[in-house]
């Protein structure tokens, strides 16, 4: 008479259980559920879509390998995201691309507090700006701005000094400011 309704939480638990048993259909479902968000993360840490896809596939391999270890203390999405970020960091460390240097010209300070500065820019444009950063800068900027890590933690994670982390972040911001300014000027010209 009464149809027993299952909560999304118990459905997710079942999905996790099936995934840990290597049930390919459940793994596919989990992938479809979380891959769009994780792809966005991967894109921020990568130079191209292909590279991001590599990171995504590699990351999900680890997710399925270790999903039985997920303790449900936090959200599954947060756990997967952590694995994906770690995968991206691992890839960069393997490539040894953290010490790229760039000679910056003086960047004029721009006020980012106004609503009109970034609001007109699409997410795609902002993503391209981050992707255009040198690998080391991109890595530090992502870990600092998106993952909320401190310089000490970033330095430990990437195997660099705190000073390098700070300098990479400074340079990354400078490049991004320059790109934003450039983009704003182009928008102004096209409006006129």
């Amino acid at each position: 008479m009464f149809k027993r309704l299952r909560s999304p939480e118990s459905e997710m638990n079942d999905l996790i259980k099936l995934c840990s048993k290597n049930d390919r259909r459940a793994q596919n479902e989990l992938f479809r559920l979380f891959s769009p968000k994780m792809m966005n993360v991967c894109l921020r840490y990568s130079k191209s879509r292909e590279e991001a896809e590599d990171t995504l596939v590699e990351g999900f391999m680890k997710v399925f390998d270790h999903i039985s270890e997920f303790r449900k203390e936090g959200s599954l999405e947060g756990w997967i995201r952590k694995i994906i970020v770690n995968t991206a960091v691992e890839k960069f460390r393997k490539k040894g691309m953290l010490y790229a240097t760039l000679h910056m010209e003086e960047i004029k300070e721009i006020d980012f507090s106004g609503p009109d500065v970034l609001s007109d820019m699409s997410a795609d444009e902002l993503m391209h700006m981050i992707q255009a950063l040198p690998a080391g800068y991109r890595m530090v900027f992502n870990l600092y701005a998106f993952e909320g890590l401190k310089h000490k933690e970033i330095a430990e994670k990437l195997g660099i000094s705190e000073g390098t982390s700070k300098s990479n972040l400074y340079d990354a911001r400078a490049i991004l400011k320059k790109e934003v300014e450039l983009s704003r000027r182009q928008a102004k010209v096209s409006n006129e």
Binding site: R24, N28, S113, F146, L176
Partner: peptide, 26 residues
């Protein structure tokens, strides 16, 4: 402010994944 603006613009975004990605993973 700049970090916050990038975060709010990109963090909740989703990017489409090509079918090829699942095939590779499979």
């Amino acid at each position: 402010d700049m970090d916050q603006l990038f975060r709010s613009s990109l963090d909740a975004e989703e990017s489409p994944v090509r079918e090829n990605a699942w095939n590779r993973l499979d």
